[in-house]
Simulated assay, not measured.
Amino acid sequence: MELRKLPVGLLYVVSFSVQAVDVPIKEGMPFVSARKALINSGWKPNPTYSGEFGVESVLVRKGYPEIESCTEGVRYCSFNYVKDGVCLGVGAVGEEIKGMKVYAWAFKCPGKE
């Protein structure tokens, strides 16, 4: 039986392309605009919050099912999206959803509790 070697370059290209997903958002961008751009680019909200109380449940009821969590006080919130099996977490800060600004994002799937 003859064994063939899989070119390492092919593996590199496949793994690199998963991490090199282009997202249409920028740091400081209003969250509402970033969300719209993501959805228009094929990203889908990835619901992760299953609680009944807190700011997160209010955001779910207002139509933001992708909320994962928010801090108290100055709100730092995490939102999750998925596209073609790739997860995207977006961090936004602000007191109200209309005033929130994107401060970070990462290609990371939310953890399960």
Rank of each mutant, 00 (worst) to 15 (best):
S50T: 15
K101L: 04
P24I: 08
N46Q: 13
N46M: 14
V21H: 04
W43P: 02
Y76N: 14
V93G: 01
F31L: 10
E95D: 14
K108C: 04
G54N: 06
P110Q: 08
A34S: 03
V60I: 11
L6T: 14
R75T: 07
E113S: 12
R61W: 00
P65V: 04
M100F: 04
C77T: 06
E96L: 12
L6N: 03
S41R: 05
F16A: 15
M100H: 03
P24S: 07
L38F: 05
V82K: 04
R61H: 11
A104I: 02
K101Y: 04
L6H: 04
A92C: 04
F53A: 10
A20D: 13
V14S: 05
S15P: 00
R75C: 03
G9I: 02
G94I: 01
A92D: 00
N40Q: 15
V74M: 12
G9V: 06
I25C: 03
E27G: 02
R75P: 01
E52F: 09
E52S: 14
G89T: 15
P30K: 01
S78R: 08
V102D: 03
P110I: 07
L3A: 11
K98G: 07
D22E: 12
E56P: 03
V55N: 02
S57T: 10
N46S: 15
D84M: 14
R61C: 00
A37E: 11
G89C: 02
C87P: 06
M1R: 09
G54L: 04
P47F: 06
R61V: 01
V86Q: 07
E68L: 08
Y76C: 05
V13E: 15
V93M: 08
V21F: 09
G54A: 02
K5E: 08
K26H: 10
M100L: 01
L6V: 15
G28R: 05
L11N: 13
I39Q: 07
C87D: 08
G94Q: 04
T71E: 10
G99Y: 11
F79N: 07
E2F: 08
Y49F: 15
D84I: 03
Y64N: 06
A104K: 04
P47K: 09
P110D: 11
C70V: 04
S78V: 14
E95N: 14
I67S: 07
C87N: 12
G94K: 00
N80M: 10
G111V: 11
G91I: 07
E72Q: 06
T71Y: 02
V55A: 10
V55E: 12
V90K: 01
G99S: 13
A37I: 01
Y76T: 15
G63M: 07
K62W: 09
F16G: 01
L6W: 08
Y81L: 05
Y12G: 08
G73F: 00
E66K: 05
E96T: 12
Y49V: 07
S69C: 10
E95I: 08
A20E: 03
A20L: 08
V18T: 13
M29K: 03
K36Y: 03
F79V: 09
K98L: 04
S78N: 12
N46P: 00
G73T: 05
E68G: 15
I25H: 01
V102I: 09
V18D: 07
N80A: 11
W105E: 03
S17T: 13
L6K: 09
S33C: 03
L59A: 12
V93P: 00
K36F: 07
